[in-house]
């Protein structure tokens, strides 16, 4: 159960004027970040320094909703070629798990899907995705440890194309955005897939752990530069992390959150819904 700081705050002060410290605290606690928090508080301040707590809370909510776009329609498969989804991110955020969940999301929507074990580096990364494939009954294409993940994804595209499988999800190795060689390797994966189809990958999704603080924005910035992100998968929202960084990412970089992870089971996954999200944040 997420703590509803702002609701408590409203209950406590609704009779009187807003307590600015408590308001700031509530926003910071959600990991909205200093910049976003300042931005929101600015908006509240415009209502006057003696704004009451109820109004303050409403303004906060409005400001966050102003940043987050409403959900678009779910992507439909391309008629003539596979839609490639490249899943990227720093170490341990939940890429492999989310790749599997996403594959299940597509297949349960009635579309075929192939998973590619493009993490050829981390110990047992291939076995991990294979285990998921087995559990979900989804085919996993794999190579060798130490192998070239770009080549693997390139071949996987052929396989999906030949067999008319609409979705191809590539689970890439975790890498810190500060490691330029690893970031270049990721750009190469993208470029290589682009040889088949200059518009591919259709989606580059960054997996962000909801417990991450201000570094999430730096991660998004760097990955965006390397591969051009189309969205965020925000994971581990079942913990006490609120994932406020996703708002900051949207605000500063314009990258929308598309999916959320709320547990370790395959069904703990959903399309991002901004109203639900704002409620848990506040």
């Amino acid at each position: 159960m997420p703590l509803k700081f702002l609701q408590k705050f409203v209950a406590q002060y609704s009779a009187g004027p807003a307590d600015w410290d408590a308001l700031e605290e509530a926003l910071l606690r959600a990991d909205l970040g200093v910049s976003m928090t300042t931005h929101i508080l600015e908006a509240v301040r415009k209502r006057g320094l003696d704004v009451n707590a109820q109004t303050a809370a409403e303004v906060c909510r409005e400001e966050i909703l102003k940043v987050l776009p409403p959900a678009g329609p779910p992507p439909m498969p391309l008629p003539d070629r596979p839609s490639v989804v490249l899943v990227v991110g720093v170490n341990g955020t939940g890429k492999t798990t989310s790749s599997a969940k996403l594959a299940r999301w597509f297949t349960s929507g009635g579309f075929g899907c192939l998973l590619v074990a493009a993490d050829t580096f981390r110990a047992a990364a291939i076995e991990q995705l294979e285990a998921w494939g087995k559990r979900l009954d989804i085919e996993v294409l794999k190579g060798q440890y130490g192998g070239d993940s770009a080549a693997l994804c390139f071949d996987a595209w052929n396989s999906a194309h030949r067999r008319k499988i609409p979705y191809l999800i590539c689970d890439t190795a975790g890498r810190l955005h500060t490691k330029s060689n690893l970031m270049q390797e990721l750009s190469k994966v993208k470029r290589t897939i682009g040889k088949h189809d200059p518009t591919a990958p259709r989606e580059c999704l960054l997996v962000v752990d909801a417990t991450t603080g201000s570094n999430a924005i730096v991660q998004a910035k760097e990955f965006h530069e390397a591969v051009g992100l189309t969205g965020i998968i925000l994971t581990k929202l079942d913990g006490s992390g609120k994932g406020g960084a996703a708002v900051a990412i949207q605000h500063e970089l314009g990258i929308p959150t598309r999916f959320i992870g709320t547990g370790e089971k395959p069904e703990d996954f959903a399309a991002f819904d901004r109203d639900t999200f704002v409620n848990t944040i506040l």
Binding site: T211, T212, G213, S240, G241
Partner: peptide, 12 residues
Amino acid sequence: CDAATGQQAVNV
């Protein structure tokens, strides 16, 4: 603990 953890490090 991951060095990039945010405000929830306290709860954790």
